[in-house]
Design a protein around this nucleic acid. Structure first.
Length: 481
DNA sequence: CCTGCCGGGAG
DNA sequence: CTCCCGGCAGG
């Protein structure tokens, strides 16, 4: 369980994703893993420009943390303790954060100033500061994201990795198709919510959505994500329909029932990453609104479009090429597919059912990662459509853990946070962030304080002079340790 | 044993 | 919530 672990987890997702996304390795994911955690506030873009954000995040909690630690006499748990008692949740992580802070400069080139450095200081635990820094963040965002990638749409907040592999043949086709269709009065245009972006409608949209869901998985920023996703302007493939409120792009696929195993596979697969060849199978998916037909041959899909949607003669094989605009290639990772089938568990992925199935903390993130990375190729909505709902649930579950996260009980007073290498502190922090508030393990009692308590000081005969806590046989409030 | 106080019950 | 107390655990 260390940074390496996360990286590995990351690579899982990448692999599973079929690499088509080209979310090259951990980097982006890695940062994503934590980004969200920090994104408690508002619609802050989640940047997958990996290293940067990741580090920023690490810094995130440090600011106040440093203070806390520095002001408190080393070894004296008192301050921390009292902070804890006063309920300054945001300070609780201070200890480790401070460590992080100190370590971060090493990993964050050019962070001292503003720009990236700025939102490196975003403190999740300090909403105020967050807000204050939001602007800087936005400024920084331009610094990081080339203007060319900044789009006005909400979904544009989710960056697409620059190094993304140029979309394949299918995407070009789709792009062309999109352009053309947008010029005509094609069904694609008729539905405003379907108006695809100029580039790679399916791919982009899905990436966006997935990024969203992914990031949210860790950020717990669901309010934003949801709203974002439900925004009509969110690019989506034509097949989206209104019934998908939470996940506009996720339509219950009925044609491709591999969905189920697929998602299951992603959800339950062994997190240990193993390199494997992808055996991708090209399928052809109908892009017509509300149609999710997926066929294995282009001729088949053409015929489908021609006959079903264009109302052409069924018998005639004549094609004027218009069908091409209404379907696109998708690649399906047969490996994952088959694996998913074989590892299919009784648990239906569509059921939000048993979130507990996931060992909550450390595997939670990877799960969502996988889901994210999974979006192997551009328009594979149906592939994911069914996994998505569970993703939602799952993510929510994660989120649930994040609630306590912030209030994670600090290490007991006695424990001193070890100044450690950044990786180590990261681990600690992550753990703290992801692990549900450790209910003070049974048997671990607060070490008995040295100070004399009311009982001892005043004696039984002056019980009325005791503090109430003492009277109630609770931890003395007057003579705290 | 004494002491501190957690966990839980009663009102 | 307040108030109380059984009972555990450290000393």
């Amino acid at each position: 369980m260390d940074t390496r672990y996360i990286l590995e987890q990351t690579s899982v997702g990448t692999r599973v994703g079929g690499a088509d996304f080209n979310y090259r390795p951990g980097r982006s994911v890695l940062c994503d893993t934590r980004v969200p955690t920090a994104e408690k506030n508002g619609p802050m873009p989640v940047y997958t420009h990996g290293p940067v954000f990741y580090k920023l995040l690490m810094d995130g909690g440090s600011v106040s943390g440093v203070k806390g630690e520095q002001t408190s006499p080393k070894g004296n748990g008192r301050i921390l303790h009292e902070m804890e008692k006063t309920g300054l949740g945001e300070q609780k992580d201070t200890g480790s954060s401070g460590i992080l802070k100190r370590a971060s400069p090493t990993h964050c080139p050019g962070t001292n100033g503003q720009s990236p450095g700025v939102f490196m200081h975003l403190d999740i635990r300090n909403p105020g500061k967050q807000a204050e820094l939001a602007n800087n963040f936005r400024a920084a965002q331009e610094w990081i994201i080339p203007p060319s990638e900044i789009q006005p749409l909400p979904s544009s907040h989710i960056p697409v990795p620059r190094n993304r592999k140029p979309s394949g043949h299918a995407d070009k086709e789709v792009m062309a198709a999109t352009v053309l269709t947008s010029l005509s009065t094609s069904p694609l245009v008729l539905n405003p919510s379907c108006a695809p972006p100029v580039t790679e409608p399916g791919s982009r949209a899905w990436k966006d959505v997935l990024s969203n869901s992914y990031s949210s998985s860790t950020s717990g920023n669901w309010s934003w994500d949801n709203s974002d996703q439900s925004v009509p302007s969110t690019p989506s493939p034509p097949l989206s329909n209104d019934t998908n409120k939470n996940f506009p792009l996720l339509t219950p696929g009925d044609d491709v029932n591999e969905d189920v195993p697929e998602s299951t596979h992603f959800m339950f697969e062994d997190p240990i990453p193993r390199k494997r060849k992808n055996s991708m199978k090209v399928m052809f998916k109908c892009l017509w609104k509300n149609c999710e037909k997926v066929l294995s041959t282009s001729s088949g899909i053409q015929r489908h479009v021609r006959t079903v949607h264009l109302g052409r003669n069924t018998d005639s094989d004549y094609s004027d090429g218009e069908e091409d605009f209404y379907y696109s290639e998708i690649e399906i990772n047969m490996d994952s597919l088959t694996e998913g089938l074989s590892s299919l568990t009784p648990t239906s992925p569509t059921t939000c059912g048993p979130p507990p199935v996931f060992p909550p903390p450390l595997t939670a993130v990877p799960h969502s990662e996988r889901i994210n990375m999974n979006s192997s190729h551009s328009p594979t909505p149906t592939l994911l459509s069914q996994s998505a709902p569970s993703t939602l649930c799952h993510i929510r579950t994660d989120h649930a853990y994040q609630g306590p996260v912030i209030q994670v009980r600090t290490v007991s007073i006695g424990e001193k946070r070890q100044p450690a290498a950044i990786t180590h502190s990261t681990v600690i922090k992550n753990h703290a962030l992801i692990t549900p508030a450790p209910k003070s393990a049974p048997g671990t009692r607060k070490p008995r304080g040295e100070a004399k308590k009311c009982r001892k000081v005043y004696g039984m005969e002056k019980r009325d002079m005791w503090c109430t806590a003492c009277r109630w046989k609770k931890a003395c409030q007057r003579f705290t340790d």
